[in-house]
Computed example of a mutant assay.
Amino acid sequence: MYDKLNITSNKFKNAIQKFDGDFPVSHLTFNINNSLPSGNYGITKKPANYNITIEMSNTQLSKISDLGSVVAITHEIIHAEIYRKMLSAAKKGDLNQGEYSTQDRINYINSLADNFPGLYDYYWKRYKPTWNHNLMAQHYRNTIADIVQQFDNNRLSRQIYVDIAWAGLRILEDRKESDAWSNLSPSEQNRVLLNLKNNFFNGISNCK
């Protein structure tokens, strides 16, 4: 699936390339972790020593469609990209602010505000523990949809790709709705749920 994404989606390839090269802000490592709990397709670990690790569960991915797997992988890539931006602002190899000097913390937050205002807004200005997924729900769903649409060669309507990008971005870790999901009308939410059922969970599964 990863190899096919690299071939079929320029946006996915470009996202991965940000972690390559001689002097990247961070490196990216992919691992398989089939012990992730049911319904958890992947996890992105916090940066450590200039490296971000993504763990995907083949066991869980086998339970959803190919498009669902692409959404799940892209979802984790975006988590990594958010961390990469944070490392870029911090100019450090980790995000352990408790070990930063006071000036380092000030420089870090100011850099976020200057360079990544959307990230700064959710992470600092109106922080809540679910800031990461709230940020993704508001600002990254179209990016996920773009990558899935390229992978699928425009087989379906744009609306379906946008709707299945909601996977993992509706009900968050605290069991509350994301801000962006709450702003949808009931009819829009019902449409999304139907498209998730028909295309994320069900649908073509040739890459298993």
Rank of each mutant, 00 (worst) to 15 (best):
M136E: 13
E76L: 12
W166L: 03
N195R: 15
H79W: 12
F200Q: 11
V192F: 06
D174M: 05
I147M: 14
L193T: 01
I109T: 14
K63F: 01
R141P: 11
L87V: 02
K4R: 10
R105A: 14
K176W: 01
G98A: 10
S111C: 13
I16R: 04
G98S: 14
I109E: 13
S35C: 08
F116K: 10
N49Y: 00
S69Y: 04
N206Y: 00
I32H: 02
K128R: 10
V162L: 13
N58Y: 07
S185N: 05
Q189R: 15
N14G: 05
Y123C: 13
T29A: 06
L61D: 01
D121Y: 02
E55N: 09
C207F: 00
Q159D: 07
T59F: 09
A15S: 08
T59A: 10
I7Y: 01
K4M: 02
H139P: 08
P117Q: 12
N14K: 06
D146L: 02
D146E: 15
G168N: 12
I204R: 09
R170H: 09
Q189S: 07
F116R: 12
S57W: 05
S157P: 07
H79E: 06
S88W: 13
Q103G: 05
F201K: 09
Q97E: 08
F116M: 11
